[in-house]
Amino acid sequence: MKRYILKRMLLSIIILFFVAMLIFGIMRVIPTSFVEKKAMERAQMPGSRSYTEWIRILNEQFGMSGNVITGFFNWLGKVIQGDFGDSWKFTIPVTRKFAQVIWDSFWLGFITMILRVIIGIPLGILSARKQYSKTDYAVTVFALIGISLPTFFFATLLKLLFSVQLGWLDLFGKVGRDYLTLGTWGQALDVAKHYIMPVLTLTIVSVGDLMRYTRTNMLEVLNSDFIRTARAKGLPERTVIYRHAFRNTLIPVVTLLGYTLPSLFGGAMITETLFQIPGIGYTSYQAMLEGDIPFTMFYLMFMAVLTLLGTLLADILYAVVDPRVRIE
């Protein structure tokens, strides 16, 4: 087990190296260039140097003078020493900007995931147990609506209902206008209140796939021979479903959950933008638009690390829930 994890880690480093190279290459060749934009701005100032001169100076300043390969290895050399550089757009160290914005996204993602699990899995089981019944159809329609309609649609509906019609919640923002006058407890409550609509939006759009996935797997398990054996033993239906069937349904579901690890930190760009929550999704989107290479590199590398960890976690969990799988 230890050896396996170590091996996977080493493999991950190689994968990360190539991922980094690829992303860096793409970032350098996309038409959005931070340097060009800056040079254009500076050149337009009265009495300024020419555009080409500014390009040369700025390229020097931002370490873009060499070609892509040397640029990449320069970046890599610093990263290995733990230095991700300063964000060009935000003009503070990348890691500091990241630390400022990640937690909002994390809490949004984390609460959403918990809700997703506690709503999606039981509904999936219910719908499988009562296949083709009214309950099943209702749950399926609900899930499909969630899967197919876009985030902004639900966000707008929720805003219309809770902010405009009922006036219970603020339209957007992370804190209310009297945030600073509140005590610690009050501040936490205020933030929580502002989280309600984004979390609801994210849950509605993501609960459907887990529910459908659980339903499909549960149906398959319920039709298997060992469930018939369990019933033939005289076990109550509750035990048959929640002990014998559920443990088997868990196998694919746990893997799916392992893969969602990156999405916990990945942020939700559209939702964060709609509710103006300064999370990582929103921030990284801005950074990418401006061609902020250090920040984008850091963010995408972070996602790559999480994806690799997520797959490793899924594989380990797979072995935990399924005794037939042995990790060697």
Binding site: F226, R228, K233, P323
Partner: peptide, 16 residues
Amino acid sequence: ISMVFQEPMTSLNPVF
């Protein structure tokens, strides 16, 4: 009344 099934390979729960 107890029952012995046709498919021994799949009649036992694989996770227990």
